[in-house]
Amino acid sequence: MKYKLVAFDVDGTLISEQVWKRLHTHFGMEDDFNEKNITLYRQGKLTYSDWVKSDIDIWKKKGATKSLIKEGLKDVKLVDGAKELIQELKKMGYKLAIISGSLNVAIEHVFPDYEDYFDYIFLNKILFDDEGNIVDVESTKFDHEGKAAALAHIAKLEGLSLQECVFVGDNYNDVDIAKIAGLSIAFNCRDKNLAEVCDVIVNSNDMRNLLDYIHEA
């Protein structure tokens, strides 16, 4: 196999929606709330960790619990063909990774046994007590420009070159990792800058259509 490892984004890639935006709306936050924090982050006025924690703190103040978060995610689904693609890649012997700024509760909701398939998982984690109350959040170090560092870290652990790694994403925070992957695929791309740096652009309602690009003899 030319490629040995495949890493996936979550929101907009494995999941068709932007989970943070969906939950902001569910908990009654302003439509432009996320855009304001993105601007502050890009200006260096807000760290990624503080950004994640401030969002979760606001949800908590609005009464968020595990059950209410799940209620907000009830219509969120895995992209068609995503699980079948992942199962096939696993069967073929690929190492699989999630490198995302999404939330553990989201991927657990749409793909309950995801940990059985992915060898490496980097995303934000909300921690709950036995009653479902939010007790803490562990923010990932590997979103935005950090995604590239995550891929390089995994490749080193596996003894692979970056040219043997594939990344599949959809948005602006995937640009840096797309630049270093041996094969970068923009799946239903939402950002022109990502489209410019990716090797392949695939617009499809079935993720199984990526297999022919990934699996080269």
Rank of each mutant, 00 (worst) to 15 (best):
V6H: 11
D9Q: 02
V10K: 04
V10D: 03
Q18R: 04
F27A: 12
D32M: 03
I38T: 15
T39W: 15
T39Q: 15
Y41S: 14
Y41W: 10
L46A: 14
T47M: 04
Y48F: 15
V52W: 10
S54G: 11
D55M: 15
K60I: 06
G72S: 09
L78F: 14
G81C: 07
G81T: 10
G81L: 01
A82G: 02
K83P: 04
E88S: 07
Y94H: 00
L96V: 00
I99G: 03
I99N: 01
S102L: 01
V105W: 11
F111D: 13
P112L: 13
D113H: 04
Y117A: 09
Y117R: 00
F122Q: 05
F122T: 00
D129E: 04
E131A: 15
L151G: 15
A152K: 14
H153F: 10
I154D: 08
L157R: 02
L157K: 14
G159V: 09
L162V: 11
L162E: 12
Q163R: 13
C165Q: 02
F167E: 04
G169Y: 13
D170W: 09
D174K: 13
V175I: 11
L183K: 11
N188D: 00
N193F: 06
N203T: 02
D206V: 01
N209I: 02
L211C: 03
Y213A: 09
H215I: 09
